[in-house]
Amino acid sequence: MPACSDMLAATLQKHEDASAPTLVFLHGLLGSQKDWQPVVDQLSCHYSCLTLDLPGHGESTDVDGVDFDTTCQLILQSINLHINGPIWLIGYSLGARLAMYLSSFHARLLPTAAFKVEALVVESGHTGLSPQDRPARWQHDDKWAKRFEQEPMGDVLQVWYEQPVFSSLNHEQKQSLVAVRGGNLGSKVASMLRATSLSKQPLLGEPLCESGIPVHFICGESDSKFSALASHSGFDFQIVPNAGHNIHAEQPKLFSQLVKQLIEAI
């Protein structure tokens, strides 16, 4: 479905079992709904799967995120257009933070939703910074946003994937990501990075608890930072072996099996 000013590009792959929840996938910064295809290939034989292009990404480049509320309202409206029934939200990195935010505040953002968030899977997601840590994070994100705006995308990505969070990737994997992500528009990436900066995200641990929605954190064995965050979150968490920050790309079969196990355990 093509994106317009108030609609995100989305792809729904339906499964015949209407009683099963629909899985909704939210990608990370610089990604697109296509990132989830190896996982969708595994899970679509059991569940309907909906993938979305976030604002400024993929086929949603004409859509602006603006801020957390606007971005999450766009996501909720897009889900509501396609689904009437229970869903499992599955988000990676930025997509995980958005999934946590809209799960916490969906009643305010879209009070008339036809679907119900049954559970949330957080892949390498951050629940939020303390107020004193937010100014430094804003400076960090705004610096990257300026680079995305001003420098060739390929040059910025070469440096982007040298950040510690991507240390589990080898040289070939990094170069593959640089090639795949090179088609992004720098101004759109910068806009989304500023709109949904971790510095602007509230602490989501307590609101998630109050939402009553089951939350499952998934982290890669080699991603020590996010594994530590998950272990201290108070929520259920799983560690995936031989994986770093982007588990669904590095270990799509294991990731898919884990999601299926979580659903079947409910």
Rank of each mutant, 00 (worst) to 15 (best):
Q158T: 05
D35N: 15
Q73R: 15
Q150V: 01
A243Q: 09
L198V: 12
A20Y: 00
S104P: 04
R147C: 06
G58H: 05
V122P: 08
Q175T: 01
F217I: 01
H245I: 12
A3S: 15
Q77G: 12
G65H: 11
E16R: 14
L43N: 02
L43C: 09
S199L: 07
A195D: 01
R137H: 08
S103V: 10
G58M: 03
S227Y: 02
Y101N: 06
I90E: 04
R194I: 14
I213R: 11
G125S: 08
S5Q: 15
Q261T: 14
K34V: 14
D142L: 06
F235V: 13
P252N: 12
Y92M: 13
L81P: 00
L258Y: 10
F237S: 15
D35T: 06
E123Y: 03
G56M: 01
D155Q: 14
S256V: 10
L203K: 08
W88L: 12
D69T: 11
I239M: 13
P252Y: 05
T127W: 00
E123M: 07
I83D: 02
G95T: 07
Y101M: 11
D236L: 08
C209V: 11
G205M: 06
P241D: 15
V63I: 07
L185S: 01
W88N: 08
L204K: 03
Q201T: 05
T196E: 06
F217E: 04
M7F: 06
I87R: 07
G56Y: 01
L120A: 09
S199W: 04
C4R: 01
E264D: 13
M7L: 15
S167I: 00
L120S: 08
E151A: 10
G28T: 11
G220P: 04
L74T: 02
S5M: 12
M1G: 14
P241T: 13
M100I: 12
Q238D: 13
H106W: 00
K260M: 10
L76Q: 04
F217S: 05
S19N: 14
D155S: 14
K14T: 15
C4G: 02
C4T: 00
V215P: 08
S227K: 15
V63F: 01
V215T: 08
V122K: 09
A96D: 03
T22K: 02
